[in-house]
């Protein structure tokens, strides 16, 4: 046993010391560099899909939601800070981002098959899309909103009466989350029949 083991070890040592180990190192090295390049490229590629230009690169988004969003507070406001499409729609941390991106491949299929390629089709399908977004935001406790708006730092003395009344109660207690009360802040709403709190 011991001899065999020794034999194995020496063989291993020999292999490492023999010229062929250079090739081995090369392979490892190439693998390492390629890994970095691929990983970097992958993330860079991912980042390109995470820009507003990419999001409104197709007419489905540019002609519908983008036009609506342009008149809202997240496009133009007194401080000039803007929330772009991915700020609200794509999680910031890696795991959640990848999950969202994999789900998004379904939307690529939608694009290819022309699921919402006219205004009429878009409006017709708006409710199902909005319901999905509300569901996602509800489940994440409106994580994307909170990336910019942190409850901890809200100054109630600067907010309106109606804001304070809601924020200091239902929001503070965790009973409700941002999206429960702030639907339709960036786009037109679909038929709200049956949605909680609406008419």
């Amino acid at each position: 046993m011991a001899r065999q083991k020794k034999g194995f070890l020496t063989r291993y040592k020999d292999m490492l010391l023999s010229p062929s180990s250079v090739a081995m190192g090369l392979i490892l090295g190439i693998g390492f560099v390629a890994g970095i390049v691929f990983w970097g490229g992958f993330n860079t590629g991912l980042e390109i899909t995470n820009t507003e230009e990419f999001c409104i690169g197709c007419h489905e988004m540019e002609n519908n939601v983008y036009q609506e969003y342009k008149s809202t507070i997240h496009y133009s406001n007194r401080s000039g800070v803007r929330a772009t499409c991915p700020d609200c729609h794509v999680p910031k941390d890696w795991t959640h981002k990848i999950v969202r991106k994999i789900q998004a491949s379904q939307e690529v299929w939608g694009k290819l098959t022309g699921y919402i390629n006219t205004r009429e089709k878009f409006v017709e399908h708006r409710k199902e899309m909005a319901l999905r977004e509300w569901q996602r935001m509800k489940e994440s406790d409106s994580r994307e909103c909170r990336n910019c708006h942190d409850f901890e730092y809200m100054d109630f003395s600067e907010q309106g009466k109606r804001s304070v009344k809601m924020h200091s109660t239902a929001l503070a207690s965790g009973e409700k989350t941002c999206i429960d009360c702030h639907k339709g802040i960036a786009h037109e709403l679909p038929d709200m029949e049956g949605v909680e709190g609406w008419h």
Binding site: K165, G184, E188, L189, P190
Partner: peptide
């Protein structure tokens, strides 16, 4: 500002309706 009132939804009634006025004040 930005309160949508149309065929699809009525933002005012989400606070002023008889079902919602109590929670919204």
């Amino acid at each position: 500002r930005g309160y949508q009132v149309d065929l699809n939804s009525n933002k005012c009634l989400s606070c002023h309706s008889w079902t919602n006025y109590k929670t919204s004040g």
